[in-house]
Design a protein around this nucleic acid. Structure first.
Lengths: 219, 219
DNA sequence: GTCTATATGGGGATAGAC
DNA sequence: GTCTATCCCCATATAGAC
């Protein structure tokens, strides 16, 4: 039997990924955890602090794995730019392969990107700030001809594609009629890397936008 | 002075795009609208019905515009497949150019894709179901060699990129350090079409995923 | 550390005067 | 149609017994 603190964190994580911050009550959390209502205010100080702890528990190791993967890529590259697809894998892989965290982890990550609560955003921003610069520098080196502004947008597109995928049970159901398997995280990551990789390599374009849209071929 | 019903819808839309379904109270809505608390239960029957009305008010004309744009594309194509970028424009354009709706519209659309509330999802799914098949058929014709499963995933990636962009003030701030302008909707749409267009055209790949990642060139 | 009981406030919904 | 007052429930947080 895990200790009370962990049980609370687990239950909160599950409910949070399903319903979001404001929709869950401490009563629901403690009932799900099989512990007493008072325990949450003993181990954490407030609902806010509990939610921040839930996210922090996953974000810290996640970003450690991301940085470790980036380190490994750069060591392999031996001074040369890291190939684009390896960078994408270093960034996306740790999210898609949670390595022993609960099943709710992936959905939780998806929710974090879209959670409107300021408290959640604060802890999320703090953690992301630690890794953003390293990855952006690496992407710049991999795509030296892409204007920085365009690079940022494409990173945002990629993150959005990832977040949507993690959170999507709904859309997938309607769009695919059920032929897509949202539980195949490895397959999804490969598809996403392929999609985003091609997107990153598209020409940056000009002010006239879509009329000069790239004609792309695959060798 | 607009009528009470409209004022309530407007206030609810603004608050909803900022904070989400469960976080807003009818008291906050009526205070923001400058109307009485009882009015919301007179004009609508419940909070749930109000929120559904908020989304439906925007979704219906949005999807009408999408279908009209698709109709125009297919008329121009005269029986041939509609080019991919035109399809993307027909789908994304009406979201990015709200045509006189309030400023909160774009954020509201972003939130709709990530809202966990079942009530919201229900109205959203109902509206999307009406246009999904038409667009999917058109995409299939534009990309006849792409396996259906892959097409669905790439559509989901594109929708995710769009939703993230619409909702993102947070990530953009951190990632770009402020050089990206989230209010330039037309520019964003062009960038997104370019990115997604290249992603759709990437080779479908095989089971080994990233190791055979496409080498893409632009003509 | 754990549980019960409770303080305090806010929520949605409604009844009924005007 | 609009406003006020109110019912009743549920929320977070805490105090204090064990």
């Amino acid at each position: 039997m895990e200790d009370t603190k962990t049980r609370i964190l687990d239950a909160a994580e599950r409910l949070l990924s399903e319903r979001g911050f404001t929709a869950i009550s401490l009563r629901a959390v403690t009932a799900g955890a099989g512990v007493n209502l008072g325990a949450v205010n003993y181990h954490f100080q407030s609902k806010k602090a509990l939610i921040q702890a839930v996210f922090a528990r996953r974000l810290e190791p996640l970003n450690r794995r991301r940085l470790a993967a980036l380190d490994a890529c750069e060591a392999r590259a031996a001074g040369k730019p890291v190939p684009l697809e390896e960078l994408l894998h270093a960034f996306l892989g740790p999210v898609m392969k949670p390595d022993g965290a609960g099943a709710g982890f992936v959905q939780l990550m998806g929710r974090m990107y879209t959670e409107p609560s300021l408290d959640v955003r604060r802890v999320f921003s703090a953690e992301m700030g630690k890794i953003a610069q390293r990855f952006i520098s690496a992407f710049r080196r991999a795509l030296p001809e892409l204007p920085p502004e365009e690079l940022f947008w494409r990173l945002l597109f990629t993150i959005g594609a990832m977040a949507q995928t993690l959170g999507a049970g709904l859309l997938l159901h309607f769009i695919s009629g059920g032929i897509c398997d949202p539980s195949d995280l490895e397959g999804i990551e490969k598809r996403l890397i392929r999609f985003a990789g091609a997107g990153f390599r598209a020409s940056a374009g000009d002010a006239r936008g879509k009329k000069r849209a790239a004609r792309v071929r695959v060798s």
